[in-house]
Write a protein that binds this DNA or RNA. Structure first.
Length: 551
RNA sequence: GCCUCCGUAGCUCAGGGGAUAGAGCGCCGGUUUCCGGUACCGAAGGUCGCAGGUUCGAAUCCUGCCGGGGGCACCA
């Protein structure tokens, strides 16, 4: 029995009580079920009597008593008790609880998937860097968290697309092109250009692969180098992100947005809504109608589109592509965008929640307790690639995801590279590897637990009960992580689950020792192991972290 | 000035109204003939920044204050 089916069972009881009319209770849509921290309070507890009693004008404990006595008759519930002001504590019989292991093994990779967000179509945009250089550490948190959010939303039943908005338009691109061209010709890179060592490398690569560019007239040459460098730099970013287990469904180009009629279409829509006006020669969007502290310029007096114009048109474009909700992951330095984007949504005639902005705090890097200055000159880590080289993909992703994005974060490179308990990612992965090992050993012993008779009632040890209880929480954890856009909940859950498993393993022998005979208990425990392994693997997959068979 | 995030154990941090506030690290002390000890068990350690409010119940929601981070372009 899962928390969800428990909630459904309780709701049925409430419906029955309400129908009889003795208590004037309003049956709620959903019943809150929690897993008590204290084991003595049962497998599950509900506060339902507490919340319904006052409106119904009855004493909470009296109502609890009526509900509890009916729950006692529900199949799978072994006992109930009233506690404190009116909690109902519920215990399951171990066979009902143990059935969960079978259910998880049967569901396999889809265990944890749910329908919390079914029917929603959500766009998650993150990173969205200029293609003028390597992705740096600032982008790395969004790469990890953004991809995890997209995974989690999809697991919760939302139709989801992750999207990278390529900022390939504007003067930065020209500066980038000019810098590479100068380097290719052995000239000094312009003062306001890009100066990283990668510019030299790009120039050398382009000289080798497209030598004809050097023969072009000056004006065409700049465009040629800009485009050649753009193509290669974008490709480099895509390679690194792929390595970093960060997948994008859509790569959207700002330039393509302007080349198509999307900008004019978008503006026309906003004009029709009556939120565009001209003043001092510039074209403005009246965002202040919707909580922004001032109106924003779309087209400057000199006829140039602002960056905000692109953002606005892009939002309208995403909505036109069918996304109900557009999530943006932005750094703390962009928090001024929150009201602006919400206002754009409202100017477009949407609810302000159609534009959802997640603001992330910056990451501070330390090494052995010493702050690492993000300075290329000092030879320290500055790019996503550097971080991966230093600590690996799994450790980097996991460490970035396990904290809420709105809290500032300090990562110690020494700690997250360690293969010890200091490092939660190894604790979780180790639990998975240990589990995989037990299942491997079972196979070596020719124990075919999958086709053997499984008696779930044998999973009655306290540690088995706790492990099963945690396993049952997984779908709810995924659902809440999706609803709140907080994938760190998955990571924290996996740490708890890993701990539950280690404690179970410590107390409960799974495989027969030596020449000991195979019993039904061994089989039942193998089912539990398989369920735990599956759940850890599913959770890690949502985070884009590997679930190793061996470490 | 306005906006925004944060303030919980020595440190790094979890805790979307529930029962005795948790984890890891660090410190102290334990556990192994045999499934991976990268594990497990125990101890010490807290006025949840402060003050009000809402509630049967507040670390959690609301208001104010204090302290700290970040941001407030016809830049991209």
């Amino acid at each position: 029995m899962t928390p969800d089916s428990m909630a459904a069972a309780i709701r049925e009881v409430l419906v029955a009580i309400a129908a009889e009319g003795a208590f004037a209770i309003a049956v709620p849509e959903s019943v809150h079920i929690e897993r008590p921290k204290n084991r003595e309070h049962g497998d599950y507890a509900t506060n339902i009597a507490l919340t319904l009693a006052k409106p119904a004008g009855v004493a909470p404990r009296d109502l609890a008593q009526v509900i509890a006595s009916r729950l006692d008759a529900v199949a799978g519930i072994s006992s109930t008790e009233i506690a404190g002001p009116g909690f109902i504590n519920i215990r399951l019989d171990s066979a009902t609880q143990g059935e969960l292991a079978r259910s998880i093994v049967t569901q396999g990779a889809s265990f944890g998937h749910n329908t919390a967000l079914a029917g929603q179509t959500i766009n998650v945009e993150f990173i969205s860097a200029n293609p003028t250089g390597p992705l740096h550490l600032g982008h790395t948190r969004w790469a990890a968290v953004g991809s995890a959010i997209a995974n989690v939303l999809a697991a919760a039943g939302a139709k989801t697309a992750s999207e990278f908005y390529i900022n390939d338009r504007g003067v930065q691109m020209d500066k980038f092109g000019a810098s590479v061209m100068a380097a290719a010709k052995g000239q000094r890179v312009p003062e306001d250009g890009y100066h990283g060592g990668y510019i030299i490398d790009l120039a050398a690569q382009i000289n080798a692969e497209e030598p004809e560019l050097l023969d072009l007239p000056e004006a065409e040459q700049l465009v040629g180098f800009r485009e050649a460098a753009y193509k290669r730099q974008l490709h480099q970013q895509q390679q690194v992100l792929s390595l970093f287990q960060t997948h994008f469904d859509v790569w959207s180009s700002e330039r393509a947005l302007h080349d198509s009629d999307a900008v004019e279409t978008g503006f026309a829509k906003l004009r029709a809504q009556g939120h565009v006006y001209v003043q001092d020669g510039a074209t403005w969007l009246r965002t202040s109608d919707f909580g922004d502290d001032k109106d924003r310029v779309l087209i400057k007096a000199d006829g140039e589109y602002t960056y905000f114009a692109s953002d606005t048109a892009y939002f309208v474009n995403k909505r036109d592509r069918g996304f109900d909700i557009c999530i943006y992951l932005l750094g703390a330095d962009h928090h001024g965008y929150v009201n602006r984007l919400r206002a754009v949504a409202q100017c477009n005639g949407d609810d302000k929640t159609a534009a959802e902005v997640l603001i992330g705090q910056l990451v501070k890097i330390t090494k052995g307790g010493q702050e690492v200055k993000l300075s290329k000159r000092a030879g320290n880590i500055v790019t996503l690639e550097d971080l991966v080289e230093e600590v690996g993909v799994d450790a980097a992703r996991y460490s970035l995801i396990r904290y809420p994005v709105d809290s500032p974060l300090t990562l110690d490179l020494e700690v997250i590279a360690q293969r010890t308990n200091d490092n939660p990612v190894y604790y979780v992965q180790y639990a998975h590897a240990r589990l995989a090992s037990v299942l491997r050993n079972a196979a070596d012993l020719n124990i075919d637990w999958l086709s053997a008779e499984f008696d779930p009632g044998l999973l009655s040890h306290e540690r088995e009960n706790e492990l099963l209880g945690s396993l049952g929480e997984f779908p709810r954890i995924v659902a809440s992580a999706a609803e709140l856009r907080e994938p760190h909940r998955i990571a924290r859950y996996l740490e708890v689950l890993g701990g539950q498993y280690h404690r179970f393993y410590d107390a409960c022998r799974v495989l027969p020792r030596g020449d000991e005979e195979l019993t039904s208990e061994h089989i039942a425990r193998l089912w539990l192991c398989a369920a735990a392994r599956q759940t850890l693997a599913n959770g890690l997959a949502l985070l884009g972290v590997s679930a190793p068979e061996r470490m």
